[in-house]
């Protein structure tokens, strides 16, 4: 399996700190994920019913299209952010 990372260029403990930052990014991303699908698409739809979009309301748009676009943005953001974070903490693959 893998070699130990504690002795990497960024010194001991880099792995733990890296993991904490990662958890925070995951948490924020998942809040947005849930808000756009379960929130705007389902639960909060009645609140958004005043905002008209093409013959219906914003909640319907989120349920059928908007959420998918947000999911895409989230995954690419996460990949970009984490690949940068790997290098910052010196835990990227050589």
């Amino acid at each position: 399996m893998a070699d130990k990372t504690q002795g990497s260029a960024q010194g001991p403990g880099a792995g733990k700190a890296y993991w904490q930052v990662n958890l925070r990014i995951i948490l924020i991303s998942l809040v947005i994920w849930a808000l756009c699908s379960f929130g705007f698409g389902i639960l909060l739809r009645p609140m958004l019913s005043g905002i008209a979009v093409g013959g219906t309301d914003l909640g319907f748009w989120f349920a059928q299209q908007g959420s998918i676009l947000v999911f895409l943005a989230l995954i690419f953001f996460y990949a970009w952010r984490m690949n940068a974070l790997d290098r910052e903490y010196g835990v990227d693959e050589e």
Binding site: L30, I68, F71
Partner: peptide, 19 residues
Amino acid sequence: YDTSAYLMGWTGGYVLLAL
């Protein structure tokens, strides 16, 4: 509208998978 669950469900899972 009710079947939007299929649309969100079968794409939203990729966020979980990726993260």
